[in-house]
Design a protein around this nucleic acid. Structure first.
Lengths: 233, 233
DNA sequence: ATAATTTTGTGTTGTATAACATATTTTAGT
DNA sequence: ACTAAAATATGTTATACAACACAAAATTAT
């Protein structure tokens, strides 16, 4: 078990967009309020219908946010990488969680009390504006993705998922390998298809030299083709 | 052509959640900044890829917010009734519009400059918090709907759309007729199916006495059955 | 009122994709 | 190292839904 070797101070510095909105006083309170927790692979960070208490910030590792649908099939909303926030939407909407989150790999997550932040927000316009921007961006991608998932065909949805993973999580040094390795099942849940079809379609893309597959490692070979597929091919 | 017969003062009073956040000074500026515009049925209020300038507030009539997908089929994101806001997300995310909006029937819409509101927001925490709540709620329904539209079958999606319309827009005095009359095509675009299938499935529901149809007027007869269908029947 | 257009309704056919089955490979556990 | 379990792969079958075709009704325009 790797022990936590990052200070609250360091964590706070990793969230400059939030940090810079705080008064010295508020900064102090937040600093001391940070609690870091480690989650093992597949461990739940929070579950649908629970009460939301904390703003979460991924320090290391990756999480997925999803909704469990009919027949155990889950709909992945997004994958959260280090230095990103999650877990605050439900609280601000004054609801319980409507999604669940779990670790895709061992992950360190910072917890900050949302009721504390909420109190600060009501007297700190910049802090509130930070969340406005954050929410507005996520709402945009949510609409975008809803339209794609419902209108595109399998190849288009998978192509889009691959491009999404590239945009959101980047490539390795070689400039074409996706930095994120997902299981075929998670790829399927992200693209709204069965696992079989994710496997099949990835194989098809590989045979067409659009991508290259080595286990969970995926190289994007022909970006143009992917983009064509994505806008309905 | 019906002329506009509502004062800016009256409009402002119809948005108490926003109004109450404003200082007297800001209130005055907003009051004078309100411009009311009338849109005819099917008229565009804004279009995808345009720059977002105004916060919009529906005074009368109904709008639909949608994305045009492949093959002219549109994905309706939501229907906006009087006393509701729209048009602000893109601005706060610092993007151009990613959706379009048009009038489902003649509609009066108040326009308020977003850059003015944005300036106020940065010094008025309560105003910013208003948008945080607004955005957080919409993001919740966006996730909810994305999961439903991708996972449920036709009957479930249509049943859900009917319940959604009831929850969002209410019933007439008889306690069972939906207050909103949509074309079969719009029902289809809301439930992610073809027009034919919306018609067919509505007929099926009518034959099963789950609903009753009289043109565009829809009575919800058996709510239990609808709810059962909605959670995957 | 009459024609033209749009909306609604219903049947038929085609197809994308889910569901199922089963083999192989990889990963995890003892 | 050996076993069990999970993930990957691929072929076959079944089906939900789209696409198409056309008729009837309703709305809109002339």
């Amino acid at each position: 078990m790797a022990k936590i070797c990052i200070t609250n101070e360091e964590v706070l510095q990793r969230m400059p967009n939030l940090e810079r909105t705080l008064t010295p006083d508020q900064r102090q309170k937040v600093l001391h309020g940070i609690r870091i927790q480690t989650y093992k692979k597949h461990e739940r960070v929070y579950s649908e219908y629970e009460r939301a208490h904390d703003l979460l910030f991924v320090i290391s590792g990756k999480l997925k946010i999803f909704k469990d649908g009919t027949g155990g099939k889950q709909h992945i909303i997004r994958v959260v990488l280090p230095n990103n926030f999650l877990g605050y939407r439900a609280f601000f909407a004054q609801e319980d969680y409507r999604t669940s989150a779990e670790a895709l790999e061992t992950a360190e997550v910072a917890h900050i009390s949302l009721s504390m932040l909420n109190d600060m927000m009501h007297v700190n316009a910049e802090l509130a504006c930070f969340f406005v921007t954050e929410l507005a961006m996520h709402l945009g991608t949510a609409h975008e993705r809803a339209a794609s998932l419902t209108q595109k065909h399998i190849r288009g949805r998978l192509a889009e998922a691959l491009l999404y993973l590239r945009d959101a999580y980047g490539l390795e040094e070689d400039g074409c390998t996706l930095s994120i390795y997902l299981s075929r099942e998670d790829m399927a849940n992200l693209s709204n298809m069965t696992t079989s079809n994710a496997i099949r379609t990835l194989s098809a893309f590989a045979q067409e030299r659009i991508i290259a597959i080595d286990g969970r490692k995926i190289k994007l070979i022909n970006i143009d083709a992917l983009e064509r597929e994505s806008k309905f091919g």
